[in-house]
């Protein structure tokens, strides 16, 4: 290679480098642009339908009168149940794997298994819910079946983020607690867990934001696409005030209502769908924002 070739080669390399900088920047921008397009398109389609009646009406055969009352109430039920079931179980499993588990084949098996479960398509969880909760355990096509199914779905996510948060707690904190005679559980319960809690909350909220948009598994267990009544409310005026009959009522949720509207031929329902999506996206984005806020805030606050 003579001197001239080398100089040319060098020039080529430099322009290729520049070219990629431009390409990379544009492609990244493109991806962000698509996100923006999606949001704008939906807001444009659905904004006109967004009003208080939309929130307080049941679905209807007439697009202009249809609302998402049964859908958002159902979503609230399902989300509450899902978190009540999945959060403690996920955190406990995460604690076991990170703090207690010996290095053996059972632990190894559990770890591979959780990694796999995190990647199992959500529709398979729907089949599990249908076979296990609805049929085998005779819980029916009910709120509790839906909550339990989604809880199993997000359990791996909560376990993985719990482990990550626990791993981020410095080992010196554990040593400090052990050195003054704390037992393992005292160490975990009083020192490690509180330090890891913001991270665990972040992961849990992200998992919940995924669960709130899940459609397929709930269709599988037979959440209805048209429903004009609500599950019995948990708080009632008669003794003992807290009633859980609602758990066994049929239900629908926001994404299923949206799916139902998208599947109809009439154009008016597309607007309803878009309006429903604005609300669903709003909640999902808000949850993500809270999670990111928690993460950055506590990353700054606690430094070891």
């Amino acid at each position: 290679m003579n001197e001239k070739q080398r100089v040319n080669r060098k020039k080529l390399n430099k322009s290729l480098d520049k070219l990629f900088l431009i390409l990379g920047f544009s492609v990244t921008l493109l991806a962000l642009g698509i996100l923006l397009t999606l949001i704008l398109d939906i807001v444009q389609d659905g904004w006109g339908r967004l009003n208080l009646d939309f929130l307080t009406h049941f679905p209807s055969r007439k697009p202009q009168e249809a609302g998402i009352l049964s859908a958002w109430v159902g979503t609230l039920w399902i989300m509450t149940l899902t978190s009540v079931i999945a959060f403690p179980l996920g955190v406990m499993a995460g604690i076991y794997l990170e703090e207690y588990a010996p290095q053996n084949r059972i632990t190894n098996l559990i770890e591979i298994n959780i990694a796999n479960l995190a990647g199992v398509p959500s529709i398979i969880y729907g089949l599990l819910g249908l076979g296990l909760f609805v049929r085998f355990m005779h819980m029916g096509r009910s709120v509790i079946s839906g909550g339990a199914t989604l809880a199993l779905l997000i359990l791996p996510m909560i376990i993985l983020s719990t482990r990550e948060a626990l791993r981020a707690v410095p080992f010196s904190i554990r040593e400090a607690a052990y050195a003054i005679g704390a037992t393992k559980w005292q160490t975990v319960r009083h020192q490690v867990l509180p330090s890891a809690l913001p991270g665990i909350m972040t992961g849990t909220i992200l998992a919940m934001s995924r669960a709130i948009g899940e459609t397929a598994p709930l269709i599988m267990i037979g959440a209805l696409t048209y429903i004009a009544f609500l599950p019995a409310p948990p708080l009632q005026s008669q003794f003992p005030f807290l009633h859980l009959n609602g758990l066994f009522d049929p239900f629908t949720v926001l994404p299923i209502q949206i799916f139902n509207w998208v599947s109809r031929p009439q154009k008016g329902f597309f607007e309803d769908a878009a309006a429903g999506i604005i609300i669903l996206l709003g909640i999902a984005f808000l949850m993500n924002a809270v999670a990111i806020f928690l993460r950055t805030r506590y990353q700054k606050k606690i430094r070891w």
């Binding site: 999606l38 389609d45 992200l206 934001s209 948009g213 459609t215 397929a216 799916f259 597309f270």
Partner: peptide, 14 residues
Amino acid sequence: AVPTVVYGYFALLF
């Protein structure tokens, strides 16, 4: 993080 049913809407109608 966008729910997939939303993407379905986007695919079909946009």
